[in-house]
């Protein structure tokens, strides 16, 4: 039987990169398939999910899969991490891969609106009808969150302004608008 030394296969430094971005268990995986057996993303028929993503990364594929947005369908449900008998923490590999995709701006288009909203209001999800809905059920129009609290939003922006996310230019328009004010 042929033995595969995973660490020697990593000529391009792909495994090293995935590990540095949070996928620390990548090389523990022996492809048993337990993760795929419980993965909602695999069940729903997406092209990349925990098990086959790990196999591709271990085999030195990166460019070939970088633009595949199906990794952004991962719910981070962590069934895989719970069931994995080798402590791979497959969900962390998926998120490490997403972070590598994000560095290359290979981001699902669905990610942008929540990011902008997070920067501006402190909430990734906001509903303009919320004041009306809240009033209807007898609550104050504004909840005690950052939405009505400029100091809280300013604190969050201080964290985001110096983050690698800002370096990608995602918040550029919003940051310059803030400076104009």
């Amino acid at each position: 039987m042929q033995t595969v030394n995973l660490t020697q296969m990593d000529k391009e430094g792909i495994a090293e990169k995935v590990i540095a971005m949070g996928g620390e268990g990548l090389l523990n995986c022996v492809q048993c398939g337990a993760c795929a057996s419980v993965c909602p993303v695999a069940r729903a028929g997406f092209s990349l999910y925990c098990k086959n993503l790990i196999k591709k990364l271990q085999s030195g594929y990166m460019e070939e899969i970088l633009e595949d947005s199906s990794t952004w369908a991962c719910q981070a449900c962590n069934r895989c991490t719970e069931i994995c008998p080798r402590d791979v923490k497959p969900s962390e590999v998926v998120f490490a891969f997403r972070r590598i995709q994000a560095e290359e701006l290979a981001i699902s288009t669905s990610a942008f609106t929540p990011l902008m909203s997070l920067y501006e209001t402190g909430h990734a999800v906001y509903n303009k009808r919320s004041k009306e809905l809240r009033k209807k059920v007898g609550l104050p129009e504004t909840p005690p969150t950052s939405i009505g609290d400029p100091k809280a939003v300013a604190e969050l922006q201080k964290i985001l302004d110096d983050s690698p996310m800002a370096e990608l230019g995602i918040f550029l328009n919003l940051m310059s608008r803030k400076q104009e004010k």
């Binding site: 997070l118 402190g122 950052s146």
Partner: peptide, 12 residues
Amino acid sequence: TCCPAWGTAPSF
């Protein structure tokens, strides 16, 4: 603020 949601900061 937001926790932040999985598709935002945790993915970056």
